[in-house]
């Protein structure tokens, strides 16, 4: 008999609770544009902030609400995602330029000898606040991996041999988290093309040439040879440091050959033909 009572009682409680839930759900229902949720589900969901909005949810609302998609770009999802959303919402998408993160430092362990042995926690921000660096260069990469930890996509790995970060450009969404995390501010989001060909100066040292050269064999010494050889006036030298303007650079690679310390980095170019100028792109 007890067992029947128990079953009945539980059933009644269940029914009452179910009814209560039903009415509560009905009463407190909020009307939200269903598109929000659908667009959000199309976004990567990393909440990286690369679009400039606080999280994917807010960005999705903006995508739905704004009349056009101009100026709205999900860096993480890339063109594919934006196209998909554009088709879904019936709005046109302008193809945004592709950017990837690069580190402006080539000072691997063999090029930049250590001057002190630093003992402390594994944090670039902390090391940068305590010392000028464990090498004679006070501008270059510290190598303790703040960028690696900042990257939400796992696109950065510190190479244990060079102690420099390596960026996986296929993964990189140019969200800029690593650039913000870097206490030296030597990570740049750089324009690139579909084959990921780009040329940039792999050094951030603003010391005088001799000092910089002494600290690191791959340092930019500010000699200005690259600026002279550049036909497009893309290269400027300030504070003994060259900078290549990605907008003006035509990827001719003359500067790379001219640089005496090999500080200029080219990526993904086909191998050079000897003694012959090669027009690219």
């Amino acid at each position: 008999m007890t067992i029947v009572h128990s079953i009945l009682l539980l059933c009644i409680i269940g029914i009452i609770a179910g009814l209560a839930l039903y009415f509560v759900a009905k009463k407190f229902k909020t009307d939200e544009n269903p598109l929000y949720g659908e667009v959000e589900s199309m976004l990567p969901g990393a909440n990286c902030g690369g679009c400039g909005f606080p999280g994917c949810k807010k960005f999705a609302q903006q995508l739905v609400d704004s009349p056009s998609l101009e100026g709205l770009n999900c860096t993480a999802g890339g063109a594919d995602t934006m196209n998909k959303i554009g088709v879904f919402l019936g709005k046109s998408v302008e193809s945004a330029e592709i950017r990837v993160a690069v580190i402006k430092c080539k000072g691997s362990c063999d090029k930049r000898p250590k001057t002190i042995n630093f003992e402390g926690i594994s944090s670039c921000a902390f090391a940068a606040s305590q010392i000028s660096g464990d090498t004679a260069c006070s501008f270059g990469c510290i190598g303790l991996g703040d960028c690696e930890r900042a990257c939400q996509f796992g696109g950065i790995k510190i190479n244990p041999e060079t102690k420099l970060p390596e960026f996986d450009t296929k993964i990189c969404t140019a969200c800029g988290q690593c650039a913000t995390a870097c206490p030296r501010h030597i990570i740049e989001l750089r324009k690139t093309n579909k084959k990921d060909m780009k040329i940039y100066v792999g050094c951030s040292n603003k010391d005088k040439g001799a000092v910089a050269r002494k600290a690191c064999t791959a340092a930019c010494i500010g000699c200005g040879k690259c600026a002279k050889v550049c036909a497009n006036e893309a290269i400027t030298v300030t504070d003994f440091l060259a900078y290549i303007d990605p907008e003006k650079c035509k990827l001719c690679r003359k500067c790379v050959e001219e640089c005496p310390t090999g500080a200029i980095i080219e990526t993904n170019f086909p191998p050079r033909k000897k003694k012959e100028e090669e027009p690219t792109n």
């Binding site: 926690i121 902390f126 606040s129």
Partner: peptide
């Protein structure tokens, strides 16, 4: 533990 290291970092932040 490097307590003070992290506290310094936190303080700076």
């Amino acid at each position: 533990k490097p307590l003070l290291d992290y506290i310094r970092l936190g303080k700076a932040n």
